[in-house]
Each structure stands twice: as C-alpha cells, then as structure tokens.
C-alpha cells in the first residue's frame, strides 16, 4: 500500500466524478434541494384535528356548538352549510373528518350520525372521533350508550415529530445511499474504458486501487452526509453516535457500490444495477419512521441507518440503547466491503 499512489488515485476519482454531469445533477443539485426541503418543512407539529360539521337541525345541539366555539382542546370544528359541502371538503382534504348530524338529533329515538373520513385518515383518528361523537351524543340526548371513554389506537398527538426533524434523519441517509450510484458508475467506467489495466501496470497495485476506491467512496458518502447533517443541526444530540452511524452507513454503501460495479458489464448496466439497489435501500428511509413498520424492512441494511439516526437525533437515545443497531451496521459494513472487494478482485483478474 502506497499513500502517494492512493492519494493520486483518489484525487483522480474526485476530478472524474465532478465531471460526470449525471452525478453532478444528483449530488450537487440534490444536496441543495435536500437542504431547501429541510428548511421549508414545518418546525412544529400542528396538533389540532380539523373537523367539519353539518347539522340538518336548524339548531346545532349545544355540546356540538361548544366544539365549534373551541370548547375542546386539540379539535378545530367548522360548521358547514350542507351535507354535500361537508363531503366535498373532507374529500378535498380540508378536514381530516366530517360529522353530519341528523335533524332528529335532539328528538329522535335512535338518531343516525354520519361520520365522513378520507381513505388516508389514520384509523386511530376516525376511531377516536367515533367515540367522541358517541359520547357527545349521549351527553346531549341520553340515547346513545357510551361503552368507553378511552382513546383507541396510537395517541398521535403524543408521538408526532415535526416534519423537519423527520427530514433531519432521512436526508443524510438518502444522500449517502445516492453515493452508491457514483461509486458503481465510476468503477464500471474503469473496466469499460480499460483504464484499470493502465493503472495496474504502473507501480499502483490492486490493493492501492481498492484502497483508493474505498477512501473515495467512504469519503464522498461520509463527507456529504456529515456536512448536510451539520447544516440541518443533526449533530446537536448524540453527535458521537450520529457520526459513527454515518461512517458505518458510508462503509456499507461503499461495499454495495463495489458489488454493483463488479457485477456491471458496462456503464449502462452499472446505472441500472445501482438504481434498482438504491430503490431498495431507500425503502427503509421512507418507512423506518412509521410506528409499527413491517419486520421485513429490517433485513435491508439502510433500515438501521435511518432508525439509529432517528433514535439518536430525535429521542436522544445513547450507546446503551443503540449498540445493537451499531453492531448490526458494523457487521453489514464488514460483510459488504469484503464481498465487494472479492467481487472486484475477481473481475480485475
């Protein structure tokens, strides 16, 4: 291993990658877009539920009027003029749910209350709303039984995290995963252009070549991940764990990049391979923050980047909580870099 040779090869890779227009588009403009998206995300959670209400009765029952007047914390209720207007507003997403009160709400034996919700309304919200309405109707008329006053499902008000904090976790992960594309195409170009032969017939040997590619891959991924994390304030909590997670994630991606480069016959197949793998790796980035995520996602290495960053950045979890995830990431890093080097070595030979 020769430091002078490795540094010359790394500098060459940096020059080449910044002359690759597609990579520039993805990385430079992507990074700017990520940061812009982060800063336009809401910094607080809107904890109130916006609900529409239509009453067929000329007089809105007092308990429901109380809701309209803001008598219930966390619930904003607006009165609408017709059942159709209520349906339309819910359908357009103006309200998370709608309550349609019948004309006989105050006088009927079993008044029928209609609740409207959108298909993407969380079940917890619609269930909670149903309970609330039943309770209020009972209070109002004494006709509907109240079976429970507890909140069903997940209490979203307690668990919600501002969008900006969610992005703080996701953005560095996406940026690191995208480096897979750069590394895979760079490696495949070396083989397609036969430049690897020219390098390996100089004093540079195969170890220098792999080291240079590894340093470049990890450096690009980790460097960019760290910079964007710092910019968006991701190092404010558990900085050590966050930095280690970014480093391990970069190692995993470098190993996978080696594999994609080794299995690609040409530049086009490198783009295709890395795109498919990138899509797979991006899945946990989108789902890891959702409570009750499917177990199958946990076999995808990137789940652990996002999940560890999320727990460290947003909940301040420390080494004692996160060491299993860090250990799993270290194992993934060792496995993928070893497999990647073996595959590339075979290809070189």
């Amino acid at each position: 291993m020769n430091a002078r040779i490795i540094s010359a090869l790394v500098i060459k890779d940096i020059v080449l990658i910044f002359r690759n227009k597609l990579f520039l588009l993805i990385t430079v403009f992507g990074s700017i877009a990520y940061i812009a998206i982060y800063f336009v995300m809401p910094t607080t959670v809107d904890e109130s539920l916006k609900i529409g209400l239509y009453s067929s009765s000329p007089v809105v029952p007092p308990v429901f009027q109380n809701l309209i007047d803001g008598g219930q914390e966390g619930v904003d209720v607006d009165k609408l003029d017709s059942d159709q207007a209520l349906r339309d507003a819910v359908d357009e997403g103006t309200y998370i749910a709608g309550i349609a009160l019948p004309a006989d709400i105050l006088t009927g034996d079993n008044p029928q209350i209609n609740l409207y919700s959108r298909s993407d309304t969380p079940t917890e919200v619609s269930d909670s709303l149903a309970f609330m309405v039943s309770e209020l109707a009972y209070v109002q008329s004494g006709q509907l039984p109240v079976t429970s006053q507890s909140v069903l499902g997940t209490d979203l008000i307690g668990k919600q995290i501002p969008m900006q904090d969610q992005m703080r976790t996701i953005l560095p992960s996406i940026l690191i995963i995208v480096q897979l594309f750069a590394l895979a195409t760079l490696i495949s170009e070396e083989f397609e252009g036969r430049t690897v032969r020219a390098v390996l017939v100089s004093p540079a040997n195969i170890v220098d070549f792999f080291m240079a590619k590894g340093v470049f891959g990890v450096g690009m991924a980790f460097g960019q991940g760290l910079i964007i994390t710092a910019i968006i304030g991701g190092l404010a909590t558990q900085a050590g764990i966050v930095i280690l997670t970014l480093l391990l994630a970069s190692l995993v991606i470098t190993g996978i990049g080696f594999l994609c480069g080794a299995f690609s016959k040409d530049n086009m197949s490198a783009v295709s391979w890395s795109f498919v793998v990138m899509m797979l790796l991006l899945m946990p980035a989108m789902t890891a923050l959702t409570p009750g995520v499917s177990n199958w996602v946990k076999i995808i290495p990137s789940y652990y980047f996002v999940d560890t960053l999320h727990r460290a950045m947003n909940f301040g979890m420390g080494w004692s909580d996160l060491w299993p995830s860090l250990l799993i990431m270290a194992a993934f890093a060792a496995a993928f870099t070893s497999l990647g080097v073996l595959a590339l070595r075979k290809k070189v030979r």
Binding site: R4, I5, A8, L9, K12, V15, L16, R19, N20, G193, R194, T195, R197, A198, V199, S202, P203, A204
Partner: peptide, 18 residues
Amino acid sequence: NMYEQMSAIENLKLFARL
C-alpha cells in the same frame, strides 16, 4: 485506455504521480 474526461496533460500528470 486513457481517462476520457480528463485532459491529456491531466492524464500524464496522474501517471507521473503514480
């Protein structure tokens, strides 16, 4: 088998460093 996206002098300088 030169580095196509580098200039001639950059290619030579790279190998001079190697």
